[in-house]
């Protein structure tokens, strides 16, 4: 099952693109974080883009994934983006004040 996710990680130039699953919860967060970190370390990408196009549900575990990656790459001046966020995902990110540290694009 975990192998199916690997196609959801792509490196384009200096950006790691992460296609988030339909449901982002604690059950899935560990794998997403670990895989993203592998790419960040091995490929040396500077920025991370989380794509929420397929995502219909996200709890605070998703916030943990984003904050964790942000801490890692912002240290070297990298940026984190959240794209294709529907109003629900956007609201969840904003409750946590994430719009102050990452770029959110609908």
């Amino acid at each position: 099952m975990e192998n199916n996710y690997s196609e959801n990680f792509k490196v384009i130039d200096n950006y790691l693109m992460v296609r988030m699953p339909e449901e982002v919860d604690h059950h899935k967060s560990g794998y997403i974080s670990r895989t993203a970190d592998d790419y960040i370390m091995k490929e040396g990408v500077g920025n991370v883009v989380f794509d929420f196009e397929d995502t219909r549900f996200m709890d605070s575990s998703g916030i943990g994934i984003i904050i964790g990656r942000y801490k890692k790459i912002s240290y070297f001046g990298g940026k984190v983006f959240a794209i294709n966020t529907d109003t629900r995902i956007k609201r969840t990110l904003m409750i946590c004040g994430l719009h102050k540290v990452i770029e959110i694009m609908e």
């Binding site: 605070s60 916030i63 943990g64 904050i67 964790g68 969840t92 409750i95």
Partner: peptide, 14 residues
């Protein structure tokens, strides 16, 4: 260490 955001109860409240 689990990268929990610490927002669980805050979300339940919200």
């Amino acid at each position: 260490e689990l990268e929990r955001s610490g927002m669980g109860f805050a979300f339940m409240e919200a």
